[in-house]
């Protein structure tokens, strides 16, 4: 991953690190670090969806927020393809972590976010119009009566009605609020949207609607998604490629079908067999992971997964595995990836 990838990659994150300090004692001195994201590399192509899955606390949300500079990165680079700063007008890769606040604000037109909690992510004291128009106002594009037209067309695009424009978030159901969030995310015509668990708080029947809508919007506006979620079946459905995270690191990243059918990392295997299948006749032969997720402030030595891994050998507890491209476009961080024959779904 050292050479510059040029084939239509819109976001290229390399060696991303985000440590949160643990403070204790009277003087609140730093006594340790939670390594929420530790040396993570991934990339997103234009118009595609990269799914980022993992269990709670694995750092998937922190990773996306750090790339967005909502948190200050501890280390690493995040290259984003944009023509905003190029003299020739041709798009070029810009390192987001080297931009100042004003430059970053320009980039924020190209990257937007939608959030998990449809209740908390909309200010309860702002009307739908104010919420959807806010990004435009912030970027000085929200003046005059055409703003209202823009907002109405955005609302219609996500399946809401024009008369909703004067209402307040609490008058909507969870699915509708998520649509408002989508309309807001689209208002600046972004190229990339970070979706943080966008459907996990929604009911089953509403989930399907929202996922379909997101796919439609993707093809209409040629959007790229970074889709952060814990639900493996949802991620598989929407993603072109999937990255699996475990305790701040990416365990495996591959094209979606490849990853689900031919996993190379034991964690991926265990995670996928653990998902209950909606089929009463299916006899699950799941690989039960023993114990709990490792503590990111005090991770085990070597491979973080080795205490729960049934294939673990001596080397796994001594040496940290390297994140390498074993097959084309299929990355894995496991010492025994070549020799193991793992089951997919």
């Amino acid at each position: 991953m050292v050479e510059q990838r040029s084939d239509n990659i819109i976001l290229d994150v390399r060696g991303l690190k985000k440590y949160f300090p643990i403070r204790s004692g009277f003087f609140r001195q730093v006594t340790g670090h939670v390594k929420a994201v530790d040396d993570v590399s991934f990339y997103v192509r234009e118009g595609e969806t990269l799914g980022l899955v993992g269990e709670s606390g694995c750092g998937k949300t922190t990773a996306s927020r750090t790339v967005m500079r909502l948190y200050d990165p501890t280390g690493g680079d995040a290259f984003f393809k944009t023509e905003k700063f190029s003299a020739s007008g041709e798009p070029e890769m810009v390192n987001l972590f080297e931009l100042d606040k004003e430059q970053m604000k320009v980039i924020r037109r190209d990257i937007s976010m939608i959030f998990q909690d449809p209740v908390n992510s909309l200010n309860p004291r702002m009307s739908v119009f104010d919420i959807v128009a806010e990004p435009m106002v912030i970027h000085g594009m929200g003046a005059g009566p055409e703003t209202e037209e823009t907002v109405i067309s955005l609302l219609e695009r996500v399946g809401l009605r024009p008369e909703h424009i004067r209402r307040y978030p609490h008058e909507f159901s969870g699915g509708q609020r998520q649509r408002i969030g989508l309309a807001r995310a689209l208002s600046l015509h972004p190229k990339l949207i970070f979706c943080d668990e966008p459907v996990s708080a929604l009911d089953v029947s509403i989930q399907a609607q929202t996922l379909n809508l997101m796919q439609d919007l993707q093809s209409d506006f040629d959007l790229a998604y970074l889709f952060v979620a814990h639900d493996l079946s949802v991620v598989q459905h929407i993603s072109d490629r999937v990255a699996v995270m475990y305790v701040g690191k990416i365990a495996e990243m591959a094209e979606s079908n490849e990853l689900y059918n031919n996993p190379l990392h034991p964690y991926t295997e265990a995670l996928m067999t653990a998902v209950p299948k909606p089929d009463p006749k299916y006899q699950s032969e799941r690989v039960i992971m023993q114990g709990d997720v490792a503590d990111p402030s005090n991770p085990p030595p070597g491979c973080y997964f080795h205490p729960r891994c049934k294939y673990a050998k001596d080397i796994c507890s001594q040496q940290e595995p390297e994140f390498r491209e074993l097959r084309p476009d299929h990355f894995v961080a496991c010492h025994r990836a070549e020799e193991l024959d793992l089951r997919g779904v």
């Binding site: 399907a208 379909n212 796919q215 493996l232 949802v234 598989q236 689900y260």
Partner: peptide, 17 residues
């Protein structure tokens, strides 16, 4: 309407309107 793991299709989910 639920996506099934291991059965990825390019089709849309059948949603309840």
């Amino acid at each position: 309407s639920i996506p099934q793991i291991g059965k990825r299709s390019t089709q849309r989910l059948a949603s309840i309107k």
